[in-house]
Amino acid sequence: MKLIYETHSTTVDNEAGVATGWLPGELSERGCQEARELGIRRREVDVVFSSDLRRAVQTVELAGLAVPHFQDWRLRECNYGTLNGAPRSELEPRIERVRTPFPDGQSYDDVLELTRSFLADIKRWYDDQVVLVVAHSANRWSLEHLLGNRGSMEQLVAQGVNWQPGWEYEI
């Protein structure tokens, strides 16, 4: 299976420096254009899975791909608990949240385990297909750890978000 991972497009919160977490979020004007570009870039996929949070769903909808689209709650961003919607700076240092949950929320290890569960399911159901996943930064760190052998979760979280137009993995 080929898995292509893309983060959701830019949101109003991203532009304002807000950590959306489990809040729905809304794409900005720039994000809407990025979503359309994603659709052009990823025409070769067989199926799309996304987080069920609005910003990821909206990204897939605007991409306009003519393949099945499934929403999976396991692909949500880390739940920042009481810090959902707070300024991003209030999440720092995030490395302290790899094993310890945010207040009333999740840890990055919790997201890792949900991502691991998701991967087990799609490997079983879509083994010979090209799967596009549209989700969030915590899921990308999890995929990089599980599939990319790019380091520990602590190392990946410490590196932060380094956007690019997708990551590809052979499973």
Rank of each mutant, 00 (worst) to 15 (best):
R43V: 08
R76P: 11
L132K: 05
P93N: 09
T82S: 08
V161H: 06
I95M: 14
I40G: 00
E29S: 13
A158I: 08
V18E: 14
P103V: 01
E26C: 15
P24A: 15
V48S: 06
A135R: 06
E168K: 04
L112N: 00
P68A: 07
L146C: 14
V134D: 01
E154Y: 08
G166P: 09
I122T: 05
S152D: 05
A158G: 04
G160Q: 00
R88M: 02
E168W: 02
Q164R: 05
V12A: 09
W125Q: 12
V98P: 06
V57T: 06
I171T: 07
Y169L: 00
A19N: 09
E26G: 15
E6H: 11
T115I: 14
Y126D: 02
A66S: 04
T11P: 13
E37Q: 11
V47D: 06
T10D: 09
S9G: 09
P101I: 01
T59I: 10
E34V: 12
E34P: 12
S51M: 07
L38K: 06
Q155S: 11
E90A: 14
P165N: 03
H136F: 07
R54H: 12
C32A: 15
G64R: 03
N162H: 13
V98G: 12
V133R: 00
G21T: 03
G148V: 04
R42T: 05
P87H: 05
S9R: 03
R88K: 08
V134K: 03
R124P: 06
W167T: 07
L156K: 01
A56C: 08
Q106M: 05
Y169H: 01
Y126T: 03
T115G: 14
A63Y: 01
F102V: 04
A56D: 10
Q71M: 09
R41I: 12
D46I: 00
P93Q: 01
G17D: 03
E92D: 11
V130S: 13
P24I: 11
A86V: 01
S89R: 10
L132C: 08
D72L: 00
S107F: 12
E29F: 13
E92Y: 07
E170G: 13
T20Y: 10
R55E: 11
I40T: 08
L75W: 01
R36S: 04
A56Q: 01
R74K: 07
V12H: 04
P103Q: 13
V98Y: 03
H136L: 04
Y169T: 01
V161T: 07
G148P: 13
V130L: 13
P165K: 02
E26D: 11
G39M: 09
R140L: 15
A158R: 04
V98M: 03
R43D: 06
G17P: 07
A120E: 12
Q58H: 06
V60M: 05
Y108T: 12
S28T: 15
V161W: 07
A138D: 06
L83E: 00
F118G: 02
E29L: 11
